[in-house]
Design a protein around this nucleic acid. Structure first.
Lengths: 349, 349
DNA sequence: GTGAAAGCGCTAACAT
DNA sequence: ATGTTAGCGCTTTCAC
């Protein structure tokens, strides 16, 4: 079933069929209807590959993910796909499967450069995708990782300073201030912090945000109360143990992610204390676990779906060259405080 | 950069270039090398869309997922994508986004029929994918849901009895027997069961497997000890409360999934009892939560990655018409018992 | 062993 | 307003 068949059945030329399908030219209503009827009756679907060859546009977006098993990836794809549903784009999914080799080496992405180059070259020149969305697995700087391209490329969940890419990330600093303020407002004075790997951007930004809240409240963050973790549950546990061994005991602890927060809760429980009655805990990420854990974790939600949706929107707008994001180089999605059950209000303030 | 440019630079015809790229005909070693050199130097990538139009094969597999946010989906895609990496296939991802409308209506898939038809028709006739992998979000029977096709179609994580599709699912019955036997071997005599929605295939199969273990051990499953849940955490909690209110108290409970198992643990804890000392608990699915919960949940792992990998393999073999799966209609991946910390060995046996 | 050329299904310039 | 037709980049038949 090709456009030729439709043309014959409708008694018109292939050009006319093409015109009615694409709305590219005016066609007499009567002919138009005849074509439409034949299409409906036959269930004809234009061959996209022929169309792509001719128009040099495939209507497909290459989605290159660092690892589909990484926690942010599926939600981001979900957002991309929701946007795609409203448009005519499709997703060609390519998975770099970086998890094994990158595990806990948050800045050694360079070792994968070859694989990335190959994937991008294929998407670009082989598959001829119209644009590429690169989905990072950590919030980090990947400048230089993506080679220059003649097509829109947007990176989601990581940032790149290369001038040919647009980054869609989330906001770290303000939300950290807000998290801290939430604790301060609840009457907490001795607030500890369990950081992620200290030199990484999110750890630095979040710390900055936390410090701002202290400053705003005329308080000062005691260095003895900040412990360096590595984003993993185990170090949340270890840091909390250290904290528990010191005086004065913090009444609240901000872990820079949910995993470490859960580890911290484990340590509190093991010490015979209770969350939140004895120690309040706040996490970050709003991972699935944060709602499953007991008590349910108060945390910051990263709106991953919005990151994906926006990234897709940006790609589409760069393609059409219209829209609020068409010229943007950097978009930052705000986070939300999710209040659950791990923060206690201190009565004796 | 097209095949013409390469031909010109190498001083041969486009046919020859095509022959060396695809290995379709013998080419004089000297010419062959010349072509290869030019390709390497220019970084030429054949235009897949032109190739597809000509050969009527796109080398892309349409992966149609019911919902990428559903718990099995990303792991299954991970498996598919791992297989794809070894071959020359690519993934066109299409998300039906069924979660909202299907939530907890485990057998109302029919309402989505229109969307499914559209997606399949597009993949088939529009995008011209070589094969389709349909990834279900629940383990259920979707016979009739997928329209007849002239291309290989394999469904992963659901089963279809339609003779033009191949299903790749996991094993429910034997593993349930094994889970139960694990408890019996540990000395448990009063074993309760919290089922999923009773009329669903996995609930029935798992119950059958559980009963077999009882029979094998010369024991009998007390009907008063089987409570019907609905797969959600909340009913695991409710069922456990009922169980806790009866005599004799079960020493162990098998929940038909991890979510309900976690709910059951909540109820046990709330009743002032301990897991596993007072009540042992076993789940099913090996979801992320099962390792995060305290104590870590003993459960059955569904090898989702293997399901995806196998589904991709099946699709590829149907395409090439060779391989062990080329003629198969049904493939069942075994599950594994994951021993963690929620089963106690009873000393007084 | 190699090349000329037809043709995959579509779009769009051009002619009418 | 509509039809004719060239051509997108590739593969492959057919002739040499």
């Amino acid at each position: 079933m090709t456009i030729k068949d439709i043309a014959k059945k409708a008694g018109v030329s292939t050009a006319t069929v093409s015109y009615v399908i694409n709305g590219t030219k005016n066609v007499l209503p009567e002919k138009r209807q005849r074509v439409l009827d034949v299409i409906a009756k036959t269930g004809y679907q234009p061959n996209q590959v022929a169309k792509s060859l001719r128009t040099r546009k495939t209507s497909i977006i290459g989605v290159l993910v660092e690892d589909i098993m990484a926690f942010p990836t599926s939600s981001i794809i979900n957002g991309i796909s929701e946007y795609m549903e409203q448009t005519e784009y499709n997703i060609l999914l390519s998975d770099l499967r970086m998890m094994d080799s990158l595990y806990n080496q948050y800045d050694h992405i360079v070792y994968q450069q070859d694989k990335i180059n190959k994937a991008i070259t294929f998407l670009n020149f082989g598959a001829k995708v119209d644009a590429i969305i690169y989905v990072g697995m950590f919030d980090r700087d990947i400048s230089g990782v993506i080679t220059s391209m003649n097509k829109p490329i947007v990176v989601a969940y990581s940032i790149s300073r290369d001038d040919y890419v647009c980054s869609v990330t989330y906001e770290n600093e303000e939300i950290s201030t807000q998290l801290t303020k939430h604790l301060i407002d609840a009457g907490h004075k001795h607030i500890a912090v369990i950081t992620g790997i200290a030199h990484t951007p999110p750890a630095q930004l979040r710390l900055k945000g936390i410090q701002k809240a202290f400053k705003d409240a005329g308080m000062i963050l005691d260095n003895a109360l900040v412990k360096n973790g590595d984003w993993e549950r185990r170090t949340g546990y270890a840091c909390m143990q250290e904290l528990l061994a010191q005086a004065p005991l913090p009444t609240a602890v901000i872990a820079m992610n949910d995993l470490m927060a859960v580890g911290a809760i484990d340590a509190v429980r093991e010490a015979g204390l209770r969350v939140p009655e004895d120690v309040s805990v706040i996490g970050f990420d709003n991972r699935e676990i944060s709602e499953f854990v007991y008590p349910k974790l108060t945390t910051a939600e990263i709106d991953l779906k919005a990151i994906g949706f926006t990234a897709a929107q940006v790609a589409a707008q760069k393609l059409s060259e219209v829209g609020e994001y068409a010229e943007k180089r950097r978009i930052i999605i705000p986070c939300n405080l999710i209040e659950r059950d791990t923060v206690a209000r201190l009565s004796n303030t």
